[in-house]
Simulated assay, not measured.
Amino acid sequence: MFGIGLPELLLIMLIIVLIFGASRLPELGRGLGEGIRNFKKSLKENAEEEGKK
């Protein structure tokens, strides 16, 4: 996976925890999930509109 191993992933996670704090990680994950969900929904709606034309 892009040449990133377990030690690199652990280091990235540690840096994220230090920057944002452990209490804000669930909020960040929730926001990221909602953003991805909205993006997929908009792509699906656009495909349906194109299919109707």
Rank of each mutant, 00 (worst) to 15 (best):
51 G>C: 12
23 S>R: 05
35 G>Y: 07
36 I>Q: 12
6 L>D: 00
12 I>Q: 03
17 V>T: 05
25 L>V: 12
18 L>C: 09
35 G>K: 01
40 K>R: 10
15 I>Q: 02
46 N>T: 14
6 L>T: 08
29 G>T: 09
45 E>I: 14
38 N>T: 09
25 L>P: 02
39 F>P: 00
28 L>F: 04
18 L>S: 08
42 S>R: 12
19 I>P: 01
29 G>A: 09
24 R>N: 06
37 R>S: 05
47 A>N: 13
5 G>R: 02
8 E>L: 13
47 A>Y: 08
47 A>C: 12
18 L>I: 06
27 E>Y: 03
47 A>K: 15
46 N>G: 14
46 N>V: 13
30 R>A: 15
5 G>P: 01
22 A>E: 01
4 I>S: 04
7 P>F: 10
8 E>H: 05
19 I>V: 10
16 I>W: 02
6 L>Y: 00
41 K>F: 07
31 G>H: 09
6 L>N: 07
25 L>I: 14
26 P>E: 02
26 P>W: 01
25 L>T: 01
1 M>F: 06
33 G>A: 11
21 G>K: 02
50 E>W: 06
12 I>H: 00
52 K>R: 15
22 A>G: 10
13 M>L: 11
39 F>L: 07
30 R>P: 06
5 G>K: 00
6 L>R: 04
52 K>A: 15
20 F>D: 01
45 E>G: 08
15 I>T: 05
2 F>A: 09
25 L>G: 04
44 K>W: 08
53 K>W: 13
